[in-house]
Amino acid sequence: MSQFLQQAINGLTLGSLYGLIAIGYTMVYGILGMINFAHGDLYMLGAFVSLTAFAILAAAGITSLPLALLLVLLVAVVFTAGYGWAVERIAYRPLRGSTKLAPLISAIGASIFIQNAVQLLQGARIKQLPPMLPGGFEFFGPGPGSVTVSHVQVLIVAATAVLLAGFTWMITRTSFGRQQRACEQDAGMTRMLGINVDRTISLTFMIGAGMAGVAGLLVTLYYGVIDFYIGFLAGVKAFTAAVLGGIGSLPGAMLGGLLIGLIEAFYASYFSAEYKDVAVFGILILVLVLRPSGLLGRPEVEKV
């Protein structure tokens, strides 16, 4: 029982991270109908920026943890959002209106570019961050039956919940949210109504990238070990989450993320930790075969 609870907590933490990244995939898909394969690398960039920012703050003598976290969060979000904007501007906008395949290939190119740039600038070696937020809460303990929730896990779940609430509010209540949804439904019509579609798309990319940046910061705090390649696997898993939840659907992305996190955690602890990725990608195949529109996605209706 305690193992179940413990893994549920671990899975929830992992799922929150996947969910944060998956939102970026699903938003871009919703508005452009393309998969932004460079998205996982923005998450990796977020992790590197956070690590660098922590090092700079430590060198500058800022020791207050909440202040340092806030500053690093700000830097990571601004930096990755900037990258999100640049990637859209350079790699996707010139290809808008061409074949569907062109931006996809361009996305893979952007992903390879970012990975190699980080490898060259930061080195290929693994980078470490010493534990910043040690400790946690212990329930039913001590002993084998205890369940531990570390402070970092609390931070991750709380940050995800806050971001998600803010994000939902933005999409449903603000004028930007309305424009965003309008572009999603019919970009041509939206443009005729005087909405700046390009600007909306840019902002969508920046928000998605910012979320991935937050996920990068959180993962750096959680595991403390990053390298230039972490974006790939996390990206593919978040993509799986988005597909599972129904790509294009925002609550679906979060739900998919949580499900993937939980499946991974339970499979690893009750069956085999070696093959947990097999379980995750097995789910992807099943969903694509049995329910291509995902759990919360609307099936695409062919307009005649």
Partner: peptide, 10 residues
């Protein structure tokens, strides 16, 4: 992520 291993050990 080795949390699954840790909770198994625990």
């Amino acid at each position: 992520d080795y949390t699954a291993l840790i909770s198994k050990l625990k």
